[in-house]
Amino acid sequence: MPQLAFETFVPQLVWLTIVFGFLYLVLARVALPRVATVLEERRDRIADDLDQAEQFKRQTDEAIAAYERALAEARAHAHEIAQATRDRLNEETERQRKSIEARLAEKIGIAEKQIAATKEKALGNVRDVAIEVANAVVTELLGNADRAAAERAVDNELK
């Protein structure tokens, strides 16, 4: 078994020490720190990117919030305007209605007054005619007539 050839042990050990020691030094001093730097840089970079993404997201959220606020404001404003317009129109309509009503009322008043005057006049005519008739009838029947009594009787009846 070549593995038990003792005279080969010392050179193997010597070279193992040299090679392993050299490999250790190169890896520990040069190669591994470089890998560590690259990995660290990447980690930092990723963290930075995440931070940035986070920031962007925050900005986006803010923009969305602002937009929504503006939208809500606009909506409220529009609502206000609509309300105001509605109110104004209502008022106008009301005013016009009132003025028309007033005019109508005036006309009705005038008409009523005319009617009343006409009626009164008519009633006045009726009284005169009635007095005349009553006077004439009483004169015809009794020969003479008390005009004042006839007037009183007619007024009594017309009441």
């Binding site: 050179p11 193997q12 010597v14 070279w15 050299f22 490999l23």
Partner: peptide
């Protein structure tokens, strides 16, 4: 008086280390 002969074993140790580095 240490035998430090460069053998085929040494060669492959060096090759392995060189490959890793």
């Amino acid at each position: 008086n240490i035998d430090a002969s460069f053998t085929n074993s040494s060669l492959f140790m060096v090759l392995a280390a060189a490959a890793v580095i």
